[in-house]
Structures are given as C-alpha cells and as structure tokens.
C-alpha cells in the first residue's frame, strides 16, 4: 500500500500534476489522429469534441446544480424532524 501513500503525499503533488497535464494533452491530441469510421452527427467529425464537451459540461453542472441547490432545494439537516 506504499504506492497509495506515495500518491497522497503532498510532496509528489507537483509531479502528479505534470503527469496529469501530459495525459490531458496526449488524449486531446490523439483525437485529431484517430480514424473516424463513422460520423453520424456533426460533432462526431469535430476533433477534441469529447474533451471540450466533458470539461464544459462538468464546469456548468457544478455551477448550475449547486446554484439551484442553494437557492431552492437544499435544506438544513433537521428539516424533516
């Protein structure tokens, strides 16, 4: 279980960040080179669409869902008591 402790060690945080950013770049770049055997919809033809869609929808979801929760649906824990 040393590997998990190593991953969680803040001293290695910088190294992990660099590895993660490289992975992001590789995956994003790879989408430009894959063979597209079918493109049913317009977005299937756009390289890097998956990455952009994932990032944008993740950010929007966090902001919008939390906003709706705060202004409307979230209540104190003893709400039903």
């Amino acid at each position: 279980m040393n590997s998990i402790n190593w991953l969680a060690d803040p001293r290695n945080g910088r190294f992990l960040k660099v590895v993660y950013l490289i992975a992001l770049l590789v995956v994003f770049a790879a989408d430009f080179f894959v063979h597209r055997h079918h493109a049913t919809f317009i977005w299937d033809a756009i390289p890097g669409f998956g990455a952009v869609y994932g990032f944008v929808s993740c950010v929007l979801m966090i902001i919008v869902f939390k906003f709706v929760g705060h202004v409307w649906l979230m209540k104190k824990e003893d709400y039903y008591d």
Partner: peptide
C-alpha cells in the same frame, strides 16, 4: 471516452 473523462 478518455477525452470526456479526463477533462471532466
């Protein structure tokens, strides 16, 4: 799939 997940 990998692009979608890693960028999430």
């Amino acid at each position: 799939a990998l692009g979608l997940l890693l960028f999430t």
